[in-house]
Write a protein that binds this DNA or RNA. Structure first.
Lengths: 154, 154
DNA sequence: GGCTATAGTTCTAAAATAGAACTGTCAAAC
DNA sequence: GTTTGACAGTTCTATTTTAGAACTATAGCC
């Protein structure tokens, strides 16, 4: 497959996969949501090779998920900060964390707990229908071809 | 990194990434949710090499995400069907589709539309707090170390 | 000048992937 | 009863990606 044009496929999943569909990118984003911002910090917490880190950060900047913000003029140093587009990846990350909590846990219990500042409680993320608010399940969803792909699928 | 032990890391995201954190696996899962079940069907719709498809399906079976169910005795033929653990990946896939719809769209419009059979409407998936039902945003969440990782993080 | 911190780049060896051909089983067609 | 075709893989080689370590560059501090 030509991964370099995956972001132009008539499929929103493919387009997302083009951006965040590799292991390092997802782990880098986890660090971003944990407020990590600097090259050395990413490198030492992830044990990623510097080469790949450099490349992945560039890619995330290119796709508008991170902004490269100077925090020192001489020498020039930059921090990588989530844009709104990047912050909007939160449901993906949280869905993955929740699935891991549910299905890949061990006897030690959850690695992290999440507190919702708005209500003050420890919570799990739940995916609901924007129209009726009910919890979503795969079997209750029917797929239609949209304007971006008129041939029927599924 | 030792990707082969990523599923034992004290981090639910890492564990999930160990299972679904590569491009082909995510695309294969998309097909699963579109009711694709057979080797040839995956291969022809994804243009994945047979080698990799074989390997990824084995991995998904090994992790309990797909079941290999015989549908013909002679010759022996199998279908790959989502288990409950696999069906529970739905929020991840939908979160990715929704992000792609929102941030990677083009002038043609959405490739697919989703209808919630329960309420009959076209919908978007929304992630909410299990406790108060409010829509979740990254900045409203505070992270605590859980029993599975007592050293503080973030 | 020598040491440290930060943010990368460059190099070679090892691993993963692409692309195509091949194997084996059986049913149906000729 | 031989050929064709569908299905579900496996095997092979060439190319691409990644790992791991070393190197470069800028500047502050002693």
């Amino acid at each position: 497959m030509k991964w370099d044009t995956l972001d132009e496929e008539p499929c929103s999943l493919s387009r997302t996969v083009a951006v965040v569909g590799d292991r390092w990118t997802l782990l880098i984003l986890r660090e971003c949501f944990l407020r990590v911002r600097r090259f050395e910090a990413f490198q030492s917490s992830l044990q990623i090779t510097r080469h790949l880190l450099s490349e992945r950060l560039k890619k995330l900047v290119r796709f508008g998920i991170l902004r490269r913000v100077p925090y020192s003029e001489a020498p020039k140093r930059y921090e990588y900060i989530l844009t709104q587009k990047g912050l909007d990846l939160y449901p993906i990350i949280m869905a993955m964390v929740h699935w891991g909590d549910t299905h890949m846990g061990d006897e030690r219990g959850r690695p992290l707990l999440h507190e919702h500042k708005t209500c003050g409680k420890l919570f799990d993320p739940v995916m609901v229908c924007s129209e009726c608010g009910e919890v979503l399940h795969a079997k209750q969803v029917h797929v239609h071809a949209g304007p971006g792909r008129e041939e029927a699928v599924g």
